Amino acid sequence: MTIHDDVLLSVEGLTKLYGNRKGCEDISFELYPGEVLAVVGESGSGKSTLLNCLSTAILPNSGSVTYRMRDGSRRNIYAMSEAERRLLMRTDWGFVHQNPADGLRMSVSAGANVGERLMAVGDRHYGNIRSSAIDWLGRVEIAADRVDDQPRAFSGGMRQRLQIARNLVTAPRLIFMDEPTGGLDVSVQARLLDLLRGLVTDLGLAAVVVTHDLAVARLLSQRMIVMKNGRIIEHGLTDRVLDDPRAPYTQLLVSSILQV
């Protein structure tokens, strides 16, 4: 597969097996800077396995993921050392978990959660770190007077916004999101989605968003992958896939949502 010069992430033949069971199989696609790709499908379709392989939380059995670094070089992320991958996750990438507790340190303050990420990229000035933390809390609609409160004192929606601030403070180029609005009340989901859409657009972020909610996919993404039994069965512009689904499974997904 020829990789175009401006491609940020190139996935080719990605396969992950759990014994005899397929997590995902022969997944290939490209992601461009500033593009949001939604990965949708029912439970067990392989979308979370794919996300975990892309973010190197788990390693695939075969296939490659090539990432364009800030200096323009291209690296197969699975050929990197573990230390290099960890640095990438702390700096150029972010991961927003469905359960915010998985992406936060619950026993330190909100400001420290954001500040830790800045320290990972070399910032050591306490005043600058605190100022940046307060600025980012404001950008995700958390009041400055909550900077010293621990996440355990926050609601679920506030924890998710804090996790987003923690991920975005280092100006990453690529964000992975695993059901970012899952488990939240509908009204909280709506505000969070508006916030995410604004931040992704303003910052020019590329993102891979795993969701079972087609409304989330429509609101956030430009392109969509539909997965079933570990394989991609449809791939295209989000509006086209949702308004004119071609695969019978996608048609069933869309019609089932419309009938709810």
Rank of each mutant, 00 (worst) to 15 (best):
M227D: 08
S48P: 01
V208R: 01
G94I: 13
V39T: 07
V254S: 00
A153F: 12
L192W: 01
V216K: 00
A206N: 07
R161P: 06
S256G: 05
G198M: 08
Q98S: 08
S55W: 08
A133Y: 05
V200S: 00
A38C: 00
P60M: 10
V210H: 06
L195A: 01
I233S: 02
D102M: 14
V7P: 08
H125T: 13
G23V: 07
I233H: 00
P60L: 11
D178M: 05
G94T: 13
I77F: 08
G63D: 11
G204V: 08
L87M: 14
L9H: 06
G103H: 02
V11N: 07
V200I: 14
P100V: 11
S255Q: 10
R85Q: 13
R173K: 14
V209F: 02
M119C: 10
S132G: 10
R161N: 03
D135P: 07
K16D: 10
D149S: 14
N61T: 12
R197C: 04
R166K: 06
Q222R: 04
M158D: 06
R75H: 10
I58P: 05
V40F: 00
Q98T: 09
A101R: 13
G23Q: 10
C53L: 09
Q160N: 07
L168V: 08
H212N: 03
S62L: 11
T238K: 01
C53Y: 04
L9V: 10
I232F: 00
E82R: 15
R85F: 08
L205I: 09
M1S: 15
L88M: 13
G23F: 03
E25I: 13
R90H: 13
V96H: 01
V209S: 01
G115I: 06
S187G: 07
A133K: 04
E12G: 10
S221T: 04
P172H: 10
N76T: 12
V226L: 01
I257G: 07
V11M: 06
A215L: 06
N167F: 01
G41E: 07
P245H: 03
